[in-house]
């Protein structure tokens, strides 16, 4: 063995530096990951002009376009009958639409769903009363793509000038806990918009 002839330093600095240089950044990156929700994908449309659309109404009364709604803040809710939390959210939106109907405009856009199914469902959910706000049919999902919908329900808040101010991913659910109550959350966002 030639160790005796050429005694080497007991600490190998290059190895230590390379090792720490590789592992510490990796640990830092993983740590930062713990503080981010991988499913929270943000809203690239925030403060951008809301994408224009013209879609047929579910009730058969012609079409509705975003431009027709200018001047009033608009709340666009993407939903579907096959979505499991939408039924729970529906009454919350209905209620808000009745309450704020003269100040804001609610619009539902059906996502990957069929007209007859939607009509029957709304009929049942509203117990025969007319809906407080219109639902539009988005055949081929083009408007959902324009808004960047990942899943249902998603709700977009557009101000009177046609700018997207806020996006809610997931349902507004009623809850006895004030910090978790979707009704209060919706009220708060509407308050900010008005």
């Amino acid at each position: 063995m030639n160790v005796a002839q050429t005694p080497k330093p007991a600490i190998s600095w290059p190895a230590l530096l390379v090792g720490l240089g590789l592992t510490l950044p990796l640990l830092g990156i993983l740590l930062s990951g713990l503080f981010h929700d991988p499913h929270d994908l943000g809203n690239p449309l925030e403060d951008e002009t809301a994408p224009r659309f013209t879609l047929p109404r579910l009730d058969g009364q012609g079409t509705l376009s975003l431009e027709q709604l200018r001047g009033k803040p608009t709340i666009i809710n993407f939903w579907a009958t096959w979505c499991q939390s939408c039924p729970l959210e529906h009454p919350v939106l209905e209620q808000a639409a009745r309450e704020f109907g003269d100040q804001v405009q609610f619009v539902g856009i059906a996502y990957e769903d069929k007209s007859e199914r939607l009509s029957a469902w709304l009929q049942r959910a509203n117990r025969g009363r007319p809906s407080a706000y219109p639902t539009l049919i988005d055949v081929g999902g083009k408007v959902a793509v324009a808004y960047g919908v990942y899943g249902v329900p998603e709700t977009y808040f557009v101000d009177a000038q046609g700018t997207v101010k806020h996006k809610k991913t997931g349902p507004f659910l009623p809850s006895a806990d004030p910090t978790a109550d979707g009704r209060l959350e919706l009220r708060r966002i509407l308050g900010e918009m008005l």
């Binding site: 080497k8 330093p9 007991a10 600490i11 190998s12 600095w13 190895a15 230590l16 090792g19 720490l20 592992t23 990796l26 640990l27």
Partner: peptide, 14 residues
């Protein structure tokens, strides 16, 4: 594990 491994290698690999 990573820190101990790096230290072990740095201090013992000679």
């Amino acid at each position: 594990i990573l820190v101990i491994s790096v230290l072990l290698v740095g201090l013992r690999m000679h």
